[in-house]
Computed example of a mutant assay.
Amino acid sequence: MRLLVRELACFFAAVRFFTRLPVPAWVGHSAELLDAAPRYFPAVGLVVGGIGAAVFWLAALVWPQPVAVLLSMAATLYATGAFHEDGLSDMADGFGGGWTRERILEIMKDSRVGSYGVTALILALAGKATLLSLLPAAWVPAALVAGHAVSRFCSGALMALLDYVRGDGAAGGNGASKARPVAARMSPAALALAGLFAAAGLGLWCLLAPPLPLLPALALALLATAWLVRLMRRNLGGYTGDCLGAVQQASELAFYLGLLARWPAV
């Protein structure tokens, strides 16, 4: 029972860090909870995707599918506080405008959004809205749950592959407290647990939609992740918190693209 309560606290710590959703008052603040939060990253994706799916299902009863998709996206953006979208824009600005490792990190720390960041956000949001609007309406709720869970697993896997890069350009696990949950390598056991939650999202898709579209969806999500990992290794020698957000956004978009690949709208 004590272990169950501890793991539940770790899950709520992840919810508190990665979203703006309320958590029970008994969940405290500690370094241990923050360190354990990333293994529940895909579980948070199940929650956020579930919110989007519920809003889509209700909105689709009243409005056309594109409107329902936009409302579901607005709900997930509100739930997360655009946490990952901010990372995407920062990484796009840094990698687009920086020529050295130090300059990339400097740009990514800047709170201002540049042209690369704005363009990346527009493409990501418009891309997700377009792809979800083209999917059969009955598939969209499952696509949202699976896409949010799988993309967060891809993002968390980054922590098992690369070292965290601090703002001063050094690699290591002693970053600022804001970035603490992303500063340590994820263990194989933690990654396996995260994979179980991602698999739960895929299982829901298999219950509500044909399983075959998952093959190109997973392939494209992994391809997008691998491409970004290559960029980070070459340009930074590791990752930052913004990089995690960028991977989540890119792999989510790629996942939806794959779902539509074999069954385009006609």
Score class of each variant (00 low, 15 high):
127 G>H: 12
212 L>M: 14
234 R>S: 15
37 A>G: 07
141 P>F: 01
41 F>C: 00
197 F>R: 08
153 F>T: 02
59 A>W: 00
256 Y>M: 12
211 P>F: 10
142 A>W: 00
107 I>Y: 05
149 A>K: 09
171 A>M: 08
65 Q>P: 08
209 A>Q: 12
157 A>D: 11
36 A>C: 09
55 V>M: 02
252 E>T: 10
86 D>S: 15
179 A>C: 05
58 L>K: 02
199 A>H: 03
208 L>H: 04
117 G>Y: 03
222 L>M: 14
138 A>E: 15
159 M>Y: 02
19 T>E: 07
64 P>G: 08
83 F>P: 02
241 G>H: 02
36 A>M: 02
4 L>S: 13
235 N>W: 14
108 M>P: 11
12 F>E: 03
205 W>M: 11
213 P>F: 09
254 A>E: 05
202 L>G: 02
25 A>G: 06
234 R>G: 02
197 F>L: 06
216 P>E: 03
164 Y>I: 10
241 G>D: 02
243 C>L: 10
64 P>V: 04
79 A>D: 04
132 L>K: 09
47 V>H: 04
31 A>T: 06
100 T>H: 14
73 M>S: 07
169 G>L: 15
142 A>P: 03
264 P>N: 07
103 R>Q: 15
97 G>P: 01
106 E>H: 14
220 L>T: 00
138 A>D: 11
138 A>C: 09
158 L>D: 07
41 F>V: 04
175 G>L: 03
167 G>K: 04
230 R>H: 08
263 W>M: 14
240 T>N: 12
50 G>F: 08
7 E>K: 15
182 V>D: 01
250 A>V: 09
60 A>M: 00
225 T>I: 01
96 G>V: 15
38 P>A: 10
37 A>C: 02
111 S>E: 12
210 P>F: 03
187 S>H: 07
54 A>M: 12
28 G>R: 11
252 E>S: 06
158 L>Y: 01
125 L>G: 10
253 L>R: 07
35 D>M: 04
215 L>C: 12
64 P>A: 09
113 V>G: 10
10 C>N: 05
89 S>E: 09
43 A>H: 10
67 V>Y: 06
194 A>M: 01
113 V>N: 03
247 V>P: 03
86 D>V: 10
99 W>Q: 13
21 L>H: 09
205 W>P: 13
266 V>Q: 05
209 A>I: 11
25 A>H: 13
82 A>W: 10
100 T>L: 14
80 T>P: 08
258 G>Q: 06
139 W>D: 15
196 L>R: 05
157 A>Y: 04
71 L>T: 03
104 I>D: 08
171 A>D: 09
130 T>L: 13
84 H>T: 04
223 L>S: 15
232 M>Y: 11
164 Y>P: 00
190 A>C: 03
143 A>N: 11
104 I>R: 13
171 A>Y: 05
204 L>Y: 12
177 S>K: 05
109 K>S: 13
176 A>E: 08
33 L>M: 02
211 P>Y: 11
185 R>G: 06
149 A>L: 15
178 K>N: 07
73 M>C: 11
163 D>T: 11
208 L>N: 04
246 A>N: 07
169 G>R: 07
52 G>N: 05
101 R>Q: 12
48 V>C: 05
142 A>Y: 00
69 V>C: 03
224 A>K: 12
29 H>D: 15
255 F>M: 13
43 A>V: 09
115 S>H: 08
236 L>P: 13
95 F>H: 15
196 L>P: 07
134 L>S: 12
258 G>V: 10
